[in-house]
Design a protein around this nucleic acid. Structure first.
Lengths: 158, 158
DNA sequence: AATCAATGGTTACAATTGTAACTTAATTAG
DNA sequence: CTAATTAAGTTACAATTGTAACCATTGATT
């Protein structure tokens, strides 16, 4: 059987399967925080990164969450306007801005985290321990492939 | 340790991990067909579904690939304008349109499939057989969760 | 120190997307 | 048989996004 004339079985094609999966799961989760907190996905992601890691620059958020820098820029603006984070310029290098959640931001973050834990444990509870282990192992494997790298902040190649 | 005050470890949170993964992998693959065939992601997906499954309606493409119906509608228009598919109304129920690839469409499809197989085997070759099995098994598990369902074509709930 | 390249970040503008409303056709209820 | 519902698919419009160009600042080269 000549491979080049065989059709592509989408149900076996990794990019297809992954994005179909990821989109439905992320959408499902997004419904929660969209409805209850009026947040967009990029905002949620930036908030989550800052909540977990403390102080970050926009560039670091880009790298960590693999989002485009304009997305991050706008998410950060939105969070800032709501008073959920504040910005602090680096004294030494005044291009750099450190971002950090405010009191209010941290309170929101705590609520969101509860949602997330709930969501995760709902998913987990539909799997056996062994299945869960398989899932985690698989994702770990894929993450190491590092096919990675949305262009987050790089200059154009010459 | 009270869970409700613990931060969320994004590196362990399934929706986050999946979408980070999926986005970088899909983007990587998209670069190929975008550059070489000038196709968008929805177009590629519609083409792939039709190539594999033969004749489909727009609604079926929605369900199969979990894309929003307007996305599919526009992708189908684009493919149609390029002469890659043709539409045929159902005689009995004239709301329904059967979509099918043309000669040209099938030729394009064949080329795309070669790209996809290449991509897949590149990925596969960076994993051991056991790892590959784990990955496939994990995705299978997640697919069964069926947290599923982008609203593709449903009427509003009353 | 003057010039040129690179970096962190923002923004204008164009392309892509989703929501809701619409069209046409079929189905069901009265 | 007509009116109200529902389905397949399209489209207008607003929101979201990405690309490329842009500041401002720093670092490197001479």
């Amino acid at each position: 059987m000549n491979k080049s004339t065989a059709p592509l079985i989408l149900e076996q094609f990794l990019p297809f399967r992954l994005s179909r999966l990821s989109e439905s799961i992320s959408l499902k989760f997004a419904q929660h925080y969209k409805r209850e907190f009026g947040m967009t996905r990029p905002e949620w992601r930036a908030l989550a990164a800052l909540g977990q890691l403390g102080t970050l620059t926009s560039t670091q958020i880009c790298q960590h969450s693999n989002m485009h820098k304009t997305k991050v820029s706008r998410a950060v603006q939105a969070l800032n306007q709501r008073g959920w984070l504040h910005r602090k310029r680096d004294k030494a290098d005044r291009r750099i801005e450190y971002l950090q959640l405010t009191q209010i931001g941290r309170r929101r973050y705590t609520k969101l985290v509860a949602l997330a834990h709930q969501f995760q444990s709902d998913m987990d509870s539909t799997m056996s321990a062994a299945e869960l282990a398989t899932v985690n192992e698989a994702i770990r494997i894929l993450e190491q492939l590092k096919v990675n790298g949305v262009s987050t902040n790089k200059a154009k190649p010459t």
